[in-house]
Design a protein around this nucleic acid. Structure first.
Lengths: 190, 190
DNA sequence: GTCTATAAATAGATAGAC
DNA sequence: GTCTATCTATTTATAGAC
C-alpha cells in the first residue's frame, strides 16, 4: 500500500506511539495526537472511547514489541546463552523505547492482555529451559525482576555519570549460575 | 502574639508526605497541600520556590527513611545475613510507602543529594562486606537492581493474584551465592 | 466521521493588599 | 508571612452541526 490507511484504530495507535517515544508522555494529549494526524481531538473518540483505552493499546503494543525482540534474540540459542541474549535484548529495548517502557511498567499498569501473557510465557520457557522446571514461576520472577530493575535504575538516572560499571553482567551471571545449580538438584549448604 | 508563622519548611514537607502517602501523587497539589495546613496555596511559595523543590525535598526524605530502615535492619548482622535483612527491609519499605517509593524512582528523578549518597554508601558497604571489595560498584548495582526490580514489579501489579511465589528469595540467594564466591578471588573464565 | 464550540475541571504560579 | 484575586495554560471529554 503506497498510501497510509485512512484514520482508524491502528493509525491513531501508531501516531500515539510516535509521539510518546519522541516527546514523552506529557506530549501525548488528545489534541496533540489529533494534530499529528491532521485531525481534531473530538474525532479520536470515534475510535477510542477515552484516553485510557489508548494507553492500554499502547501497553499491549509495547508487550508485543518486547516479546518479538526476545523471540528473535533467543532463537537457536542454547538455554543459558538464550538467557544472556534475552537479558541484553531487554536492556536494549528499554533503552530504545524509554517512554514506552515507562508506560508498560507504570504503577497499576499491568493489564492481563494476551500480549502480556505471551511475553510472560516466553520468560517462563526461557528460564524453565535452564532450571529444568517448565513452569518455574519463582525463578522467572527473579530473572524478570533483575532485568527490569536494572533497566529502571538506569532510566531513573541512578547510575549517574559513572555508569553501571559492569553490574549488569555480574548480577546476570550470578542468577544464571543459581538457576543452573538447581537443574540437577544437590544438597547446598543453605 | 504578633503574627506567628503558621508553618515552615518542615511542616509543609510533613504534610506533603502525608498527602502523598495517603492519597497518591495526583492529590499533591499546592492547593490541596495548603488546605491540609489550613492555609492558602500562595503562602507555600514563601517556603518553597516551586513545586519541583517540594518534590526534591520529598525524595530526600524518602532516601533518609529508607537508609535509616536499612541501617536498623543490618545492625549487628554478619555480612550475608545483613544482605538478607536489607533486602527484606527494602521490600517492606516499598510496600509501606508505595507512592513515595514511586516518586524516589521516577524517571529523571535521581538527585545527587546527600541522603541519596548516604543510602548508596550503605549499599556499597553492605555488598562490599560480602564480596570483599569495599567499593564493589558492579555487585552493588546488581544487588540494588534486583531489589528495586522486584519491588517495582510487585507495585506495578505484574505478579497478579498468584503473587511472586517465592521468587524474591530465590533470586536473592542466587545473588548472594554469586557475590560470596567472589570473596576469595580465583581465576574466573572471563 | 469529522468538524466547531464549549463544557468543566484542574494545575502552577504571581501581584499586590495588609 | 499570609491573604484575596487572578492570570495563564492545560487537560479530557461532550453536544450538536454537517
Amino acid at each position: 500500500m503506497p498510501f497510509p490507511a485512512k484514520t482508524d484504530f491502528d493509525s491513531i495507535l501508531n501516531a500515539a506511539l510516535e509521539i510518546l517515544e519522541r516527546d514523552g508522555p506529557e506530549a501525548l494529549s488528545m489534541r496533540n495526537l489529533a494534530s499529528a494526524l491532521e485531525m481534531k481531538a473530538p474525532s479520536l473518540y470515534r475510535h477510542y472511547p477515552d484516553k485510557a483505552a489508548l494507553e492500554t493499546a499502547l501497553k499491549m503494543r509495547g508487550s508485543e514489541l518486547l516479546q518479538a525482540a526476545l523471540e528473535r534474540a533467543i532463537r537457536d540459542q542454547d538455554p543459558i546463552q538464550a538467557m544472556r541474549k534475552a537479558a541484553n535484548a531487554s536492556l536494549k529495548f528499554a533503552r530504545a523505547h524509554p517512554y514506552l517502557y515507562d508506560l508498560m511498567n507504570a504503577p497499576g499498569g499491568a493489564p492481563s492482555t494476551g500480549a502480556a501473557k505471551k511475553l510472560w510465557n516466553t520468560i517462563l520457557e526461557l528460564v524453565g529451559a535452564v532450571t529444568g522446571n517448565p513452569d518455574d514461576t519463582a525463578s522467572s520472577v527473579a530473572f524478570w525482576a533483575y532485568l527490569h530493575g536494572f533497566c529502571s535504575l538506569e532510566r531513573t538516572g541512578m547510575f549517574g555519570q559513572s555508569g553501571p560499571k559492569g553490574g549488569f553482567k555480574i548480577g546476570l551471571e550470578a542468577l544464571i549460575a543459581g538457576f543452573s545449580s538447581r537443574q540437577k538438584p544437590r544438597k547446598l549448604s543453605a
